[in-house]
Amino acid sequence: MNYLQEALIEAFKLIINLDRELLDVVTTSLRLSVTSTLIAALPGILLGIIISRNNFGGKKVINVILNTLLGLPTVVVGLFVYSLISRRGPLGELDMLFSIRGIILGQIILILPIIIALSRNAIHDIDDKMYKTAISMGATRLQQFKLLLAEARYGISGALIAAFGRVIGEIGVSMMLGGNIRGVTRTITTAMAMETNKGRFGFGLALGLILLTIAFLVNFGVYYLQAGESSV
């Protein structure tokens, strides 16, 4: 049984030769994850700030719902969005099923709770003194908001990175809404599932290695940003 060895060798060959199919799948995944994260970022961060900074009736309920949605299985989101964008669903006319747009919609719904909850926590963690100090320094409302964002910047980037990590590694939404269409909606994870099913372990493993590398690079980027904090 030298599965692993053989698979690893094939994986490295594919990566070194920049196999077209492999590249295609990886760029699709990156494109999708970056797009969904960027689109979800703005409303997510804003809602997080609003929930954290305001007291209103039903805030507790919203927080409970939010925390529940954090662990939402991707298949549930996939099924829910499928029922929306299927031809029989209310958004059927938009022709989104089995397309990039369908996956992005699903992924946004998947990560919105993550971004909202984590930015809420990031803002919540900020010392109350920050606001008073900003006012006493003579900051305008806009400047106060900018200072708040600057103080929460690591928490908020952490939220976005967590969201990115969630979408690039998820399979339920991509499979159900994208359909794993070759050259169109085939992502790293759906391709891995398929190739493994076909017995092409090398290809699957190569994708797995790339997924790991992406995760590593992202985390390294975070570390670099934090280490570079002193050079402000």
């Binding site: 031809r87 029989r88 059927g92 099923l97 794993n180 269409i181 070759r182």
Partner: peptide, 21 residues
């Protein structure tokens, strides 16, 4: 034309077609 192949189980494939997908 671009043929988008969605590969699922037979039951699901028929189900998709019934939904017009």
């Amino acid at each position: 034309v671009r043929v988008d192949v969605v590969a699922v189980g037979t039951g699901k494939a028929i189900n998709l077609a019934q939904n017009g997908d």
